[in-house]
Design a protein around this nucleic acid. Structure first.
Lengths: 228, 228
DNA sequence: CGACCATTTGATATGGATCAAGCGATGTGG
DNA sequence: CCACATCGCTTGATCCATATCAAATGGTCG
């Protein structure tokens, strides 16, 4: 059954938020991580691992938000994914990390050694299967992200808002953990463009912006039509 | 104990050749596909599977080239990947295909039922492992593709040329199976822009264009610097 | 209150899209 | 074998969405 080691403390100490309903996954893989992983704290902007380092560990977010990114030669930064509580990351069958990972906010993360996991997978077919499913989900996300990057700026921002709302499980209001720069680097836009799109949506009463990190979706239909 | 070996590379000489002489790939998964798969011919532009259809089969290209793509609501087409001889595709842990697949050229493809493969994976840990590796490789490709899409047009085209040269294993000359439209849809550009970049490279003697499908890389250093 | 950083807003520049010919292959029927 | 249609590619002219540059505003923390 679900082992929730460290969960309560995670929730009370997370700088960020009261948590949603049931974010922590409970499949064989997640259970293994929760049983055998060690909780570790990362403060805002701390590096969890760096690009090119050997991928020795697998992670699950307990609280806070994590970004996976890559710095391009011209200095730009492409964020490949945000990981929220319950999400697992850091191990995709490769020897080395191709992205770096950092805490967006103070975050508590479960860490489990790769060896531990692969040893388990060798004997437990369900864990092996779950690892595959996990990578498959990452792949689906990456492909959706790819599709996103070719769209117009309003479409990208609308997609981001809906994606975040769904993942946070919130009804209407999203509390964003990340800065405009993070959003811009995720969407392949500039902060100015992200900001402009948000104010444009606000002017159209599609969203409201009580503060720059809180966004209220007032008219999802309009956003969904954009995403289409 | 599981061991991760690097990605298997698909080595082919020219994708026009009807057949590979050598065994195409030789890991446990590829061997299973080659032993139990049925060869099937698809003529140019024939559909192999459609988006949304149940992902019942797994495929390996024997000859020719295949594209995986998605049509967006606005009618644009995003090509997610090209598959060359030796490459496997069509099964990534999901129940349904999220892309469609078509033959770019006349192509021979091995087809194996998903059930056959998952049954095998349940008893053969090595096959299960290779399935994971395969999805991991697809993920790495998708992430590289994502990075690509944010770059400038010259960078994208240069990246495409180098990628193709490497995958085809050609020294200097690439024989492209795909049209300019295919390239454009892969890179998120228009055919006009792709064409202009190619002629620009040609003017700079970075490449030569003996015919529109044959491209000679005359100065890889320049291309690599662009990709950086 | 004042300094600092993030965000918004405004003005201008530009890379690639779009619109529009032209050109060069490939194929077909006479 | 040629005339001609067709299709894919290249080239040119213009437009527009977003980047870039610059400044103002707002929010946070000492």
């Amino acid at each position: 059954m679900l082992t929730e080691t460290g969960r309560e403390s995670a929730f009370s100490k997370a700088d960020n938020e009261p948590r949603q309903k049931e974010p922590i996954a409970s499949d064989a893989l997640a259970r293994a991580v929760q049983r055998m992983g060690a909780a570790k704290w990362f403060s805002r902007n701390a590096e969890i691992y760096g690009e090119g380092e050997p991928a020795d560990c697998f992670y699950q977010v307990l609280s806070g938000t994590v970004r996976a990114y890559k710095i391009l030669i011209d200095g730009r930064r492409q964020i490949g994914a945000f990981y929220l509580p319950g999400d697992m990351f850091g191990l995709e069958a490769g020897e080395k990390h191709i992205f770096s990972a950092e805490a967006v906010t103070n975050a508590e993360v479960l860490v489990i050694r790769r060896k531990t996991l692969t040893a388990l997978a060798a004997s437990d077919i369900e864990v092996a299967h779950r690892l595959w499913i996990h990578t498959g989900n990452e792949l689906r996300r990456a492909r959706n992200h790819l599709l996103l990057i070719n769209k117009s700026a309003p479409e990208r921002v609308a997609t981001f808002l809906l994606e975040m709302a769904e993942r946070i499980g919130s009804i209407d209001e999203i509390k964003l953990a990340m800065s405009r720069q993070d959003i811009a680097d995720y969407l392949g836009l500039t902060i100015e463009t992200v900001s402009r799109m948000l104010t444009r949506f606000e002017s159209a009463s599609t969203i409201a912006l009580p503060s720059c990190k809180r966004i209220v979706l007032r008219n999802r239909a309009v956003l969904k039509r954009l995403v289409a």
